[in-house]
């Protein structure tokens, strides 16, 4: 994929926010039991930070971007508005993706014994915090 200069600059600043983003991911993992991993990625699938031991973050970020595309279309086509979150439950647990502003997402892996109510609560809060961090990073990119 060819990127414009502007996109490249934005990405550079987003990636520069990695330590703060990682700290937020660790905080989320600590606050919700049975969460086994979390990663932040741009909507187009670039990993910004990850705290995952069991899965390969690049692959998950790419799949998240693909699922996000379908989820956005589905929400749009059925009049549900802008994307907020996506929850997948498998036999062995959950994969959930939460919007972190309009440019990034937060994907969380959790075991099947996780408290989904708490996961939603904490991950929505983390999503909002990540959105703030992205906002700060992007405003730096705007400056000449």
């Amino acid at each position: 994929m060819r990127l414009t200069l502007r996109q490249r600059t934005e990405r550079k600043w987003l990636l520069a926010a990695e330590p703060e983003v990682l700290e937020e991911l660790r905080r989320l993992r600590a606050r919700v039991t049975h969460v086994t991993g979390a990663l932040a990625a741009t909507s187009d699938g670039v990993v910004l930070a990850h705290d995952t031991a069991t899965v390969e973050p690049e692959g998950v970020a790419a799949l998240t971007a693909a699922a996000l595309g379908v989820a956005q279309s589905l929400a749009g086509a059925t009049g549900r508005g802008a994307f907020r979150e996506l929850l997948v439950r498998g036999a062995n647990g959950y994969v959930a993706t939460y919007a972190a502003g309009s440019t990034a997402v937060l994907t969380v892996l959790a075991g099947d014994r996780t408290n989904v109510g708490r996961l939603h609560m904490e991950a929505r809060r983390s999503g909002a915090r990540l959105a703030d961090l992205m906002g700060v990073a992007l405003s730096r990119a705007e400056q000449p």
């Binding site: 039991t33 408290n115 109510g117 708490r118 939603h120 609560m121």
Partner: peptide
């Protein structure tokens, strides 16, 4: 009550 539901789930468990 959403917070209470999630929190008290931990209590029950």
């Amino acid at each position: 009550l959403t917070v209470a539901a999630a929190g008290n789930t931990d209590v029950v468990r």
